[in-house]
Amino acid sequence: MRKAATTTADARPARYAICFAVLAAALIVFAALNAAIGSVSISLQELPDIVFHHAGDLTSVQIVWQIRLPRLLTALILGGGLALAGFLLQTFFNNPIAGPFVLGISFGAKLAVAILMVFVLQAGQAVSSAALIGAAFVGALATMGLVVAMAGKVESMSMLIVVGVMIGYICSAVTDFIVTFADDASIVNLHNWSQGSFSGAAWSDVQVMAVVITATSVAVFCLAKPIGAYQLGEHYAHNMGVNVKAFRVSLVLLASLLAACVTAFAGPISFVGIAVPHLIRGFFGTAKPLVVIPACFLGGAVFCLGCDLLARTAFAPVEINISSVTAAFGAPIVIAIMLKRRAGGD
């Protein structure tokens, strides 16, 4: 009669602790591998000295400090942010396959960033990270607004996703159009970025994303209680004393900010937002926001570190774009969720 998926109340804290420990260990292992593996390999014995004491072979120190550390931190921070954005959108739409990528929000952000870059770069100026995030946020919010407006009109969850994917295509087409016509040397970068990549972040960028994503994630964590209430549905949340309107607005803002920040620095990255929260819920055996929020962040970080490692090393020296790798792992999970729900009669 009882299903193994739900753990009994007494066994829970232990299970959570084990799961968090596993995630933390995976995070450390993947971070170390990311720092060690590459065109120049660095042994795991050398690594601690390089990272903690700047000591060792000069080239290795430079490679680790100037290229690999910023890149792995980017993957870690943005991966966490992306998973959280997905979790928030799933809560908001009460739809397990919602995420910033499938709902087109990443593409809206990308379009806004592309427009900003083309105009500012053509004027011969550099784009600040703050301006990038700002533009991405505006783009993400605008798309989110569009999706929310449509959500009121479409009945089924699958239709909402179709609408989101279409919005994504439209934004993507416009972005390509802009990029094509603005084709000059300074915009080659833009093309790489628009495919999605964790590479090329400077330490200053890492600082900005760390501040923005950390602050947003803390804010999300502080919403754990109303998120839990909202999971029971709008009416019950209202009856529990949640100010539903204000809560929905903050969900939209936080999810957009997370998706925007990720897109501004790494371009649109697929399926992390759907796959990670789903895996985490299954792994922890709970949907409790108080547990799932930090777990999603950790899980997203691990997932993106792993995928970026694959993207860099699988066909080295050719680098695959990160979205292809995340899609390879994420898309089957989405299909699995949809099949399971169909079987469940939803």
């Binding site: 029971l232 529990m240 004393g241 819920r281 409790k288």
Partner: peptide, 20 residues
């Protein structure tokens, strides 16, 4: 409206009543 829960035991559902 039928409650759609995910990975919640009956006790979890009852406990949501303590929210306020």
């Amino acid at each position: 409206d039928r409650l759609r829960t995910e990975l919640m035991t009956c006790e979890d559902v009852v406990a949501t009543g303590r929210y306020p």
